[in-house]
Design a protein around this nucleic acid. Structure first.
Lengths: 303, 303
DNA sequence: CCTTTTATACTCAATTTGAGTATATATATA
DNA sequence: TATATATATACTCAAATTGAGTATAAAAGG
């Protein structure tokens, strides 16, 4: 059976950490996620993407996981109406001694300011967004009540609590409401921080990646792909906090880490300029090296 | 930028329930998963697949979720060396008054007998498989110890406990060890039940689907897509038990269901031929109808 | 010696989980 | 009518986990 022909494109969300903060690699001054074609010489999608990332960026990618595949009408090639299939991947790049180019790498939270707990204006940003969402919702004739509850549920208003994993759902709600510049229904709003715009649906892909990482970090030992080979417990905690976008309880965090037996002391200590030096740890690849098999639980504890 | 051309194929894992047992739709006497081309007229992948399933089967598909996309060397078209991209989906079909064709639908566990707790021979089957795996592992020169632990971890031997979500990882291990007929390294083994063979990598796709469903059923209200509109608590419990492949504690199960506020009484009762009639319930779409937003927790309790 | 900064050690109540027992209700059948 | 069968329902209880604290120790700088 002969299927219609399509062209295939691979889109990578490469994540690394700078100063405890998750960054994503972009091109075109932060507006576009890097992407490349899937070529005949490539044996498989994974290998194709790895080869391509290596050639183009030289960044060392450890963990690489498929996110989602889509093909919509916007992706039509050159009048000839060939569908483009886009397969998106999440890749983790370990922070190391090499310098990441600041023009290429951007903090997650430039695109999703309402997701960044550490932003001092976060409450204001969220309040304004929820206000604008309510305004949109009130104009709805059908399902107004349902949409109201959806807003409250997603943004943690009215007795609902904030769930950081739902970043994609929040983005989609804002998109629907016309608050996102990429949306065709966009209505400009004064004084509301809706984050940096991206090309086509790249911001949605980024949201998918962040959501996946936030969800998986709770039961897989993924953080260690992002940490340097040696790290202190506080560094580990701060990195996780910035990824999931909320703060953790210090001693409970340590209790959990110890229980899981995921890391071991290297014997070295940090040379701080101030304060008590911290012990350095390394990830103990543990007894099992297949990454999918390892479970690690994060305490969902606020500070 | 012009990417190489590919053809795109959609593969569906359609799941329904017969007599509490999960069944999957096949063609060619149980050897092949249904698949169809992604055509130009289709607006999106989801819609394309829905249209195609409707045309071909008329089965009503509710929940539909993308599983995985792959393109490997085996999938080369007609000497011309065009890659075929296969995008697989999991679809749930509600059990209803229509009859599912027994030739088309097969129980999951015909393909994965070692995953079926209710099989009276399960212990024997597992024991033989683990034995054969050990035998393969002992011939390894490198990493023999690691592989041993991987076997124990995945099959719950030697102090490890069985984790039903890891069905794909178990299948892959058996495949690597040459115990699966589909494997190029297959070595025939007498008297070991390795389940029904499938075309190409369809059994791996099925394993992916089952793993996804087993994992998601624990935090999403997915079962209700498979249940009839009215059902008893015991029917619900039995269905879940057969899906995850292990039994649950009755009163704890009920406690959990009540806490979640997921269902409501219909006011009707069953007309049994024996025993006390059971109350009938219906799924309460609850206050939120976006399926992704609802959380439901299953008690991971053995009976 | 005091301040800063991080590590470490404990406590404790509330909640959740895993496992169990006992009893009630309806029907079929001996 | 009594008994077996099959299901529903109601409780109990210990163990483990979780969320949130407080207090103290150690190392280095000024």
């Amino acid at each position: 059976m002969l299927a219609a022909l399509t062209q295939t494109e691979l889109i990578a969300v490469l994540v690394s950490i700078i100063n405890y903060t998750p960054y994503v690699m972009t091109i075109n001054k932060g507006s576009t996620l890097p992407s490349g074609p899937f070529e005949l010489r490539h044996q498989s999608l994974q290998l194709g993407l790895r080869a391509w990332i290596h050639e183009q960026t030289r960044y060392p990618v450890g963990f690489l996981e498929q996110l989602y595949t889509f093909a919509d009408q916007n992706r039509i090639f050159n009048h000839s109406k060939i569908h483009t299939i886009s397969i998106s991947y999440l890749g983790l790049v370990r922070q190391q001694n090499f310098k990441l180019h600041e023009t290429e790498w951007h903090s997650w939270y430039e695109y999703f300011p309402w997701e960044d707990e550490q932003n001092v204006n976060i409450k204001n940003i969220k309040r304004k967004l929820v206000g604008a969402l309510y305004q949109w919702q009130r104009q709805k004739i059908e399902d107004a009540e349902t949409i109201k509850r959806r807003i409250d549920f997603l943004f943690g208003s009215n007795d609902y609590s904030w769930n950081e994993d739902l970043i994609l759902q929040r983005y989609e709600l804002l998109y629907e409401a016309g608050l996102i510049p990429e949306s065709c229904a966009y209505i400009g709003q004064e004084g509301i921080d809706v984050g940096l715009k991206m090309y086509a649906d790249h911001r949605r892909i980024l949201a998918t990646a962040i959501g996946r990482l936030r969800a998986q970090i709770k039961y897989k030992a993924l953080v260690f792909e992002l940490m340097p080979m040696e790290f202190t417990l506080l560094q580990l905690q701060k990195t996780i906090e910035r990824i999931i976008g909320r703060s953790l309880h210090k001693s409970n965090f340590r209790r959990m880490i110890e229980q899981q037996n995921l890391i071991e002391e290297t014997g070295h200590i940090t040379d701080q300029y101030r304060g008590r030096p911290a012990k350095l740890f390394r990830y103990q690849k543990s007894i099992l090296d297949a990454r999918e098999m390892e479970g690690s639980k994060l305490p969902l504890v606020r500070n």
